[in-house]
Write a protein that binds this DNA or RNA. Structure first.
Lengths: 203, 203
DNA sequence: GACTTTATCTGAACGATGTTCAGATAAAGT
DNA sequence: ACTTTATCTGAACATCGTTCAGATAAAGTC
């Protein structure tokens, strides 16, 4: 009769293996790096045979997609929190995006690879008029009365591209001197994002 | 006595295997995709045993680095040509960068992965005052008299980040509508890059 | 010319990986 | 209690990156 009702009650043979695998994968990804994250290593980490994952994921790719999905959820939650605290601040949102990616480089790479396969960013409905991003709402309103919805969409697109580009390049040595001059990492990010058209207080 | 002096005189056992391998790798990369580009497949394509490449490259990584390096050279040459034809046009340079990356996605990924490992873009000395990028020269000159060299470096950094971000995201479905509205791929790129601060005619 | 040295390539092997599959195990449904 | 279904294991397969002893041929030396 299984092992009584331990704190982490395990509904099946192993327990919620699916979740355990995703967590193990993320752990391996952040500690050992992307190269060490083989399917077998993940199974090993979860204390299970190499064939076990195939009852929860069709592929290694599907496991990675699950990890990526969890990553996007985490990033979305982080950005939603920031956007709620600092409405009208597109720059702060972008800084949050870049900082998240830079603090979990391997995870972010998996996330973006997944996005590239789908050819679409699985990001929270940032263009949803009911989104808590106030600057999005204001942008939508102004765009509507300008008759220039396109202009607003351009701004959203530019923000994404700028954030992603900076996320992947901010670590490059070419920028060391710039970071030093500007007095740190965050000022550097803010300066560059501002250069790329990101602003605080609406568009 | 080898096989006489055939048109492609082969100096050693196989010929210039190193070059042949890099070319085979690039061919496989562009036709079959990154996943199919194993060291063994490259050796197979070059008509050689799986161990042969190890006499020219320490690693698979070193082969990839060679492919990447060739890619960067090609991109540099392309951009230098454009910059010579259209001086003072940073926007055109960025469009060239993005178009190159988008027309060889797998190669560009290898190139950028290589850059990420070195944490540096192995790009031609774009900040070199003697570079044929006229807008770079003018930017340098103006920055010097402004006393604001930093500002100019920020522009360079922003251009790279914007170009890379757009290169990797331009294919996303979120932008299909925008591309249609703007009347094609290039107008879309130009509009976005402009939004991100890239300009024609000096800074 | 013959002989040595050095560079280049092969064949076979090792461990690790992604994946499949027949069968064991245990939960859920009746 | 019996069947059904979901979950996991163990062994196997092809492929991959890599190593290494030995074959092959070019370059260097006399």
């Amino acid at each position: 009769m299984s092992e009584s009702n331990a704190p982490d009650a395990r509904p099946y043979h192993h327990g919620d293996l699916r979740r355990a695998l995703v967590e193990a994968a993320r752990r391996l990804l952040e500690t050992e790096g992307a190269a060490a994250m083989s399917l077998r290593a993940v199974a090993r980490e979860a204390g299970v045979s190499p064939a076990a994952p195939y009852h929860h994921f069709k592929d290694k790719g599907e496991l990675m997609a699950a990890v990526a999905s969890e990553g996007w959820s985490l990033l979305s939650a982080t950005m939603l929190r920031i956007a709620t605290e600092n409405p009208d601040d597109a720059l702060a949102a972008a800084v949050t995006y870049v900082t998240f990616a830079r603090s979990r480089p391997a995870l972010y790479r998996v996330m973006f690879d997944s996005a590239r396969q789908r050819e679409s960013l699985p990001f929270v409905g940032i263009t949803d008029p009911n989104s808590p991003y106030a600057w999005v709402r204001e942008g939508l309103a102004q765009a509507r009365q300008d008759g220039g919805m396109m202009d607003f969409e351009l701004m959203i697109a530019a923000s994404w591209c700028a954030s992603h580009g900076l996320a992947e390049m901010a670590g490059f040595k070419q920028f060391d001197h710039l970071k030093e001059t500007l007095g740190g990492d965050t000022p550097f990010l803010r300066a560059l994002l501002t250069r790329m058209g990101l602003e605080t207080r609406k568009r």
